[in-house]
C-alpha cells in the first residue's frame, strides 16, 4: 500500500511541476525564437511578458467548443485528453533524483518506449474522427512516421540498456554515476545513440523538423484542423509535455541524470540537463525547415535504422570484451 501512496503523491507533484514548466516553456520558447529573429516576443502581460501563458489559457478557455456535424463525436472528444495522458504517463518511470521518482520500474526503459508507441493512437484518432480530409492526411502521416521512427528509437534506447546491464532507468543513471556518462565514455557509442534517440523522439512527438502531420503550409493544421479552444490546447500541451519528458528520458539515459560529475549529485542536475536539452530542441525547431515526407522516410530507413543496428551490435561487443 505504501508503494501506492508513494506513487500517487510523487505522481501528483511531478505532474503539477511538469504542467507548470510546460506552460512557462511556451513563454520561454517565444522569447528565444524572438531573440533569434531580432524581435522582442511577448512583452505586455506581466514583467517581460512572463504571464503570457496564463493569458493564453484564459483566452482558450473562453473559446467556443465546436464539434463538426459529421465528426465522430465520441472519438473526437476523447482524443485530446488521451494524448495528454500518454504524454504525462511516460513521466511516471523517469527518476528525477535517487528519491524523486513515481515508480522506478524494473522495466522502466521498456515502459517509456511502450507508452511512447501508444501516443500515435490519439493523434490518428483525432485525424480520422474529424472527418476532414486534411486532418485524415495528417493522421496518416503521423502513423507512417511513428511506425518508422519507433525502430531506431527502440534500438538507440537499447544501447544504454546493454552498457548498464539493466532496464531500470534508476540503475542506468547509477551506472553512469559510478562510471562515466554514456556521452563521455564510450563516446563513440553514446554520442551517436544519443543523437539518434533525440531525433526519433522528436519524430515521435511530431516536432519540427518532423512535424509533417500538421504541416500548416500543406494541411492547414493537420490533425488539429477541426479542434477549437481547450481541446486544441490539449493537443498543444501534449506535444510540449511529450518533448519535455523526452528530454528528461534522454538526460537520464545518456547524460547521467542526477549525477553532477565532480559536484554533489541531486535533483537540480536532472532539472538543469532536462531544461538544457529542451532549450536545444527549441533551437533546432527554430533553425531547421520541415522535412518532406520522403526525406523523412529516407533519413529513417537508410541512415538511422542501419546505424542504430550497428550501434547495438558494437555495444554488445564492447560489453563482452571491454566493459
Amino acid at each position: 500500500m505504501s508503494g501506492f501512496v508513494h506513487g500517487l503523491s510523487y505522481g501528483a507533484v511531478i505532474v503539477t511541476v511538469l504542467m507548470t514548466v510546460t506552460a512557462f516553456s511556451l513563454w520561454f520558447e517565444r522569447k528565444l525564437a524572438a531573440r533569434m529573429q531580432s524581435r522582442l516576443g511577448p512583452t505586455l502581460v506581466g514583467p517581460a511578458g512572463i504571464l503570457q501563458p496564463i493569458a493564453d489559457v484564459l483566452k482558450l478557455l473562453q473559446k467556443e467548443d465546436i464539434v463538426p456535424l459529421k465528426a465522430d463525436a465520441v472519438l473526437f472528444n476523447l482524443a485530446p485528453p488521451v494524448a495528454v495522458v500518454c504524454a504525462i504517463g511516460v513521466a511516471a518511470a523517469v527518476p528525477f533524483s535517487p528519491t524523486v521518482v513515481a515508480a522506478d520500474l524494473d522495466v522502466g526503459v521498456l515502459y517509456v518506449l511502450a507508452i511512447g508507441a501508444v501516443t500515435v493512437l490519439p493523434v490518428f484518432t483525432a485525424g480520422w474522427a474529424s472527418n476532414n480530409k486534411l486532418a485524415l492526411l495528417g493522421g496518416m502521416r503521423a502513423v507512417a512516421q511513428s511506425v518508422s521512427y519507433e525502430v531506431p528509437l527502440v534500438l538507440a534506447a537499447l544501447v544504454p540498456v546493454i552498457l548498464a546491464g539493466s532496464m531500470r532507468i534508476g540503475a542506468i543513471v547509477q551506472f553512469q554515476s559510478d562510471h562515466h556518462w554514456f556521452v563521455a565514455w564510450p563516446f563513440f557509442l553514446g554520442i551517436p545513440a544519443f543523437v539518434i534517440f533525440v531525433l526519433a523522439m522528436l519524430a515521435e512527438a511530431n516536432r519540427i523538423p518532423f512535424d509533417i502531420p500538421e504541416a500548416e503550409s500543406e494541411l492547414v493544421a493537420g490533425v488539429t484542423t477541426e479542434y477549437t479552444g481547450m481541446k486544441f490546447a490539449l493537443f498543444y500541451m501534449a506535444e510540449y509535455v511529450h518533448t519535455l519528458v523526452a528530454s528528461a528520458v534522454a538526460s537520464a539515459l545518456f547524460l547521467g541524470g542526477w549525477d553532477g560529475g565532480p559536484f554533489r549529485p541531486g535533483l537540480h542536475w536532472m532539472v538543469l540537463k532536462t531544461l538544457f536539452l529542451f532549450a536545444g530542441l527549441y533551437w533546432i525547431r527554430w533553425t531547421l525547415l520541415r522535412f518532406r515526407s520522403d526525406q523523412l522516410m529516407r533519413l529513417c530507413w537508410r541512415y538511422l535504422v542501419p546505424s542504430s543496428i550497428a550501434l547495438v551490435a558494437t555495444a554488445g561487443v564492447w560489453v563482452v570484451f571491454v566493459g
Binding site: 501508444v118 507512417a144 511513428s146 511506425v147
Partner: peptide, 30 residues
C-alpha cells in the same frame, strides 16, 4: 510479468494496431 506487459504494448498496440489502422486507411476512402 512487467516485461511481457511492456512488450505486449510495444509490439501489439504500438506496432500491429498501428499497421492495421494504416491498412484500413490505404485500402479505402473514409
Amino acid at each position: 510479468a512487467p516485461f511481457l506487459a511492456g512488450v505486449q504494448v510495444l509490439t501489439y498496440v504500438g506496432g500491429v494496431v498501428t499497421l492495421m489502422i494504416f491498412g484500413v486507411m490505404v485500402t479505402g476512402r473514409q
